[in-house]
């Protein structure tokens, strides 16, 4: 953190000499008042954040072009192997959104999906992280549990749907179970990976400072694995949404996945796109939440 700030300062100092045209810098110095100061500050800020601004600008243009393409393809009902005949236009989706904004059932669908994610994902994190830590630390635990997880891991969460319906008394529980399974393995695998990469020198350093097994676990293995645990949580969150939507489409009664599937059944084509966009935004938001939480608990990592 500090070194980056320092480098920025140095860059700022060097900026008038290198970046700005030579005739400009002296005039600023001679005026010296508040407005030119601000102008100089603005120039420096722009110079330093050029690449960031560039990315934002290009990103915005790219999204606008995507919308335009979508609009044109649906406006002219293009059929070029792919058929856009029934695909809703962006404006139709926007209309659908404004309608949904005044509709409590739409919010109910969204909130229910979020609640399922919260339960399923939290359970997965609460079980997979400690399990990964224990399996990473104790060989016997690894030898016993690893074969089981390796056999179960390749089974997609969606394939669990029939089994889940048999296993759990209510529909709600089986959907949460599917969500749980989806996020469980990415979290476990990444936690294990993080544990395997813990620098043994750090463990030895802790031992030399009088740390016993529990302290080493808490003070070395856990924080050292945290970056990988958070990678697992981010991936797990993505897979949780995939699994949830699939489960909701198959066996749900409510939820945003059900909403999307129902829209198709009811020939509400605009609602299909609305549901998809909503899922995208929710997925993006939940990943951002985890990243933000990660930065909060790992102030030492730069990224």
């Amino acid at each position: 953190m500090e070194s980056i700030a320092l480098r920025r300062e140095q860059q700022t100092a060097a900026e008038p000499a290198t970046g700005a045209e030579p005739s400009y810098a002296p005039t600023v110095q001679s005026q010296g008042g508040a407005p030119p100061q601000f102008a100089l500050y603005l120039r420096r800020w722009l110079a330093l954040n050029r690449s960031g601004l560039r990315a934002v600008l290009i990103g915005a243009i790219s999204l606008a072009l995507f919308l335009l393409a979508w609009h044109l393809l649906t406006e002219y009902r293009v059929v070029f192997f792919v058929r856009f005949t029934n695909v809703p236009s962006p404006s139709a989706v926007y209309e659908s959104l404004t309608r949904a904004m005044h509709d409590s059932t739409f919010f109910m669908h969204v909130i229910l999906s979020c609640r399922r994610i919260l339960f399923g994902f939290s359970l997965a994190a609460l079980i997979a992280v400690p399990l990964g830590l224990v399996m990473g630390r104790f060989r016997l635990a690894h030898e016993i549990l690893f074969p089981i997880t390796e056999v179960l891991r390749p089974i997609p969460a969606i394939a669990w749907v029939p089994m889940a319906i048999m296993l759990w008394p209510t529909n709600e529980q089986s959907i949460i179970y599917i969500t749980f399974l989806g996020s469980f393995f990415p979290i476990l695998v990444n936690t294990l990976h993080g544990m395997s990469l813990v620098d043994p020198v750090l463990v030895r350093a802790a031992q030399c400072l009088g740390a016993r097994e529990m302290s080493i676990f808490r003070e070395v293995y856990f924080p050292a694995s945290l970056p990988h645990i958070f990678t697992g949580l981010t991936v797990g969150m993505g897979v949780a949404w995939v699994s949830l939507i699939a489960a909701e489409m198959i066996s749900g009664q409510f939820g945003i996945g059900y909403f999307t599937w129902e829209a198709y059944s009811l020939v509400q084509y605009a609602d299909i796109a609305l549901g998809m966009i909503c899922i995208g935004v929710l997925g993006l938001g939940s990943s951002a939440l985890i990243r933000g939480f990660g930065r909060l608990v790992m102030p030492w990592s730069r990224t």
Binding site: L202, R204, A205, Q207, C208, P223, A224, L226, M298
Partner: peptide, 20 residues
């Protein structure tokens, strides 16, 4: 018999805890 705090050790690879 095993490592302990009565013998301080300094390693070549610094070995500071990056999270502290």
């Amino acid at each position: 018999d095993g490592p302990g705090a009565d013998r301080g050790m300094v390693f070549q690879q610094y070995s500071l805890f990056p999270w502290k």
